[in-house]
């Protein structure tokens, strides 16, 4: 007899069930129940934010090199568990070819950002020649805690495309998984858990985004929110974001990849450092 998997949520490096005890059944195209998923609550969102904030220091202060190594490690572990993702993607209704393509693209996406981790700062920073005796430079810093509403029509690749640039840039995240395609999200959390990603850096909730996203958007300790174009819900979220001037990045397509996706979740910091100028020594030799 087959051992069925219990799909749970992921908060602060452990896999609890929702504190609310609620669930929703995920049905196959033939109407059979595939699994019962956690219907996460407001309180789960708040717990996830606390975990993400707590993890922010550790993650953002890791060396860029080390973050790159960890992202690459995620790719390695995902590669090793491909089969599990194929099966889940197929269970959720797509063909084997498409499933293989999606998993491969997700692995490639991880490798892509693993390579960016110690380069994007160099590309997007500047040294600014001010008219005074100062060394003035502008560099990038992660925004902090980022809420991610994963694309609804993609179980794995959408989530990976939106989450990994945030992590690459040193942010920590709360991910709201696709409501109707949640299986790979939970299994991907297990991959993260096995990949040296410290607990709390990624927190993942399943359930109704109409219920959880507004809580995330209004939360005063979340610095930014990312989603695809989600129409009217997006508009109400962008209003909720105003209370703490959360940055809300809405992509027209959920699956994009590039430098800009990292930079959108960075703040530019400019530093003026004094230069000592004593005497009249010049460099006219």
């Amino acid at each position: 007899m087959e051992i069925l998997k219990t799909y749970k949520i992921y908060i602060g490096g452990s896999f609890p069930r929702t504190e609310s005890g609620r669930y929703y059944p995920l049905k196959s195209s033939r109407g059979e129940t595939i699994a019962n998923l956690c219907l996460s609550s407001r309180k789960d969102v708040r717990n996830a934010v606390v975990a993400a904030r707590k993890a922010f220091g550790t993650w953002s202060e890791k060396t860029a090199f080390n973050r790159g190594q960890i992202l690459y490690r995620i790719a390695e572990i995902l590669e090793g568990r491909k089969g599990q993702f194929f099966e889940e993607l197929i269970k959720q209704g797509i063909g084997r070819k498409a499933a293989e393509k999606e998993v491969q693209a997700s692995i490639d996406c991880l490798v892509y950002y693993a390579g960016w981790a110690d380069k994007y700062v160099a590309v997007a920073s500047s040294v600014n020649p001010v008219s005074s005796n100062h060394f003035n430079f502008s560099t990038l810093e992660p925004m902090g805690v980022v809420g991610i509403i994963a694309p609804q029509e993609s179980s794995l690749l959408g989530l990976v495309s939106m989450l990994i640039p945030a992590l690459c840039g040193g942010n920590t995240a709360i991910v709201l998984a696709s409501e109707n395609l949640p299986l790979c999200a939970v299994t991907f959390a297990e991959v993260l858990h096995a990949s040296d990603v410290p607990g709390g850096v990624v927190n993942l909730l399943t359930g109704s985004i109409h219920e959880t996203a507004p809580v995330l958007a209004a939360h005063m300790d979340v610095n930014a929110l990312v989603s695809e174009d989600i129409g009217e819900l997006g508009k109400s979220l962008s209003i909720a974001c105003v209370d703490n001037l959360k940055r809300y990045i809405q992509y027209s397509s959920g699956i994009t990849q590039g430098l800009q996706e990292i930079i959108e979740l960075q703040e530019v910091k400019t530093t003026w450092h004094p230069i000592e100028k004593i005497g009249g020594a010049t460099s006219t030799y």
């Binding site: 001037l245 530019v268 004094p274």
Partner: peptide
């Protein structure tokens, strides 16, 4: 957590130097 940090000086501005805030001080430079 601030968009501009001055060391041993204050309120210096220059066209070449990006200016702007974190958090509720706004966004964009």
């Amino acid at each position: 957590k601030a968009g501009v940090v001055w060391a041993n000086t204050y309120n210096k501005f220059d066209p070449v130097s990006p200016f702007g805030g974190y958090k509720e001080s706004g966004f964009g430079r």
